[in-house]
Simulated scan of single mutants.
Amino acid sequence: MYENNNVGNVTYMTNYINHIIINFALVLILLFFYQQNTFLSNTQLGIFIITYFIGTVFLTPDIDTRSEPSRRCGVLFKPYTIMSHHRGQTHKWYGSFFIILYILIILSLIIIIFDPSYLFPFYNTLLTYKNEIVYAVIGIFLSNFFHIVTDFLS
């Protein structure tokens, strides 16, 4: 991908594969430190790793463009792509929370369309598993944060 800037008109941005490689290298470093300080349960660690992977491969800050992650997420993220612009809110440190909020809204709409009686049990389930959800949010947040840092440094 290319982006215009003030120095030499064109700069190369980190491509999708490099983002994946860098994010996975960084999570390996995090897991090494995890081995040193075992403060997470295996369930919490598993949730973190899975959501970190999802955040790296699918729910990246580049989901707001015509990119590989947006193609992988398909039609569900088409409205999100239309509503946002590249290097907008998703490329801020808090951008992950917009993606997570969007997912919650889409899930709520799907539940309302198919069976509204499941909406409150869905939210109660989220509250029941709030500790696990915290690690899921951290996984997505960290993968997106490392993506943004990589973009900034490239």
Rank of each mutant, 00 (worst) to 15 (best):
Y135A: 11
I111L: 12
V149D: 05
T38C: 00
L45E: 11
I110A: 13
I100M: 12
W93M: 14
I133N: 08
L101H: 05
W93R: 15
P121T: 00
C73V: 13
M1L: 07
L30F: 15
N144Y: 10
L142P: 02
Y80P: 00
L28G: 14
L28Q: 11
I103A: 13
I148T: 10
P69N: 03
R66V: 12
F53N: 01
R66M: 12
Q35K: 11
Y118K: 10
F145D: 02
I49N: 05
D62F: 15
I22G: 00
I49K: 06
W93N: 05
F145W: 14
D151M: 00
S108A: 09
F53H: 07
N5R: 11
T90A: 15
S154H: 10
T56C: 09
N4V: 13
I47D: 02
F114W: 12
L31F: 13
S41R: 08
Q44P: 01
N42F: 11
L142Q: 08
I140N: 09
V10W: 13
T60H: 01
H19D: 00
N42M: 14
N15R: 14
N4E: 14
I22M: 02
L126H: 01
Y80L: 15
T11Q: 14
T150V: 02
Y12K: 13
G8R: 11
L119E: 02
D64N: 11
I17G: 01
S154T: 09
I22E: 00
P61E: 07
N124L: 10
T14S: 06
D115I: 00
P69E: 03
F122H: 01
R71E: 06
F141H: 15
I82W: 08
S154F: 12
Y2N: 13
V134L: 15
I148W: 07
L45P: 10
A25Y: 07
G95M: 04
F58S: 04
N6E: 06
F145A: 08
F77S: 08
N124K: 13
S70F: 06
T11F: 11
I110G: 07
N23E: 03
T90E: 08
T11N: 06
L107Q: 09
A136T: 13
T14Q: 03
P69S: 04
N144D: 07
M13C: 07
D64M: 07
G46H: 04
N4K: 14
G74C: 02
E132C: 11
L126Q: 01
Y34D: 15
T11I: 15
F141E: 09
V134S: 14
I112N: 04
F48D: 02
S84K: 10
N42D: 10
Y94Q: 13
L76G: 04
T125M: 08
P79Y: 00
L119I: 06
F32K: 07
L76I: 14
Y118S: 05
R72L: 09
F24T: 04
F53W: 12
N18A: 03
F120P: 00
N4C: 05
